[in-house]
Amino acid sequence: MTNEAFFPFLIGILPLLGKGALMTIELTIISVGIGVIIGIFGGIARVSRNPILLIPSTIYVEVIRGTPLLAQLFLVYFGLPSLGINLPPFTAAVIAMGINSGAYVTEIFRGGIQSIERGQMEAARSLGLSYLQAMRYIILPQAFKRILPPLGNEFIAMLKDSSLASTIAIAELMRVGREITSRTFRSFEVLAVVALLYLAITLPLSLVVRYTERRMSISD
């Protein structure tokens, strides 16, 4: 163990940790972005009465939610090469995390769509709008407002879970922390700072989520 005092040591490692934190944020934004795109279509499929849409979307949600993200990540990064598909770590991570997030966001959209009164759909259809037009112009805009808080929570959860990407050699916050630890052997201090950095990102986010939740309960 080196004897350098904590604060100078901290200032020395902060730029590295900062870069890791940026990578964590980038990974999360892209993954949840993919998740939201999957989730819009998944949510529509989950409220469909057509079995061709309903059954695959239900299986997707159950399988993804019922298996560990780490297993999904390894399957994409270590498993696919045996099928001849080699992906760079970052691509593998956003694919696995995006598909994972998509399952949760699908359920968020399903709940949001189902929370809109049936009369909205009926009024839209009575005017001659098709089912998909009614979804796009009437149901989804209203559902989207209601699902912002749970979507924020999903973002926070994914931000923390993105630490799993450290296992496939992505230099995000957790990985950077572990590398510094193995170089300096100051495990407790470094890992505590890493944890606090996660908190520093998630805490403002959850405050925003709570604020929008409260505002929406007033306006509704």
């Binding site: 112009y137 009437i138 407002k145």
Partner: peptide, 30 residues
């Protein structure tokens, strides 16, 4: 359905749109 107008007991205005946007939506999109 374009040619059969309907008015509901529970009104069912599109809550996220202003009065005029409620009225213009279907003529524009349909």
């Amino acid at each position: 359905r374009e040619r059969i107008g309907m008015v509901f007991q529970h009104i069912n205005l599109f809550n996220h749109l202003t009065a005029i946007d409620n009225v213009t939506l279907a003529p524009m999109k349909v």
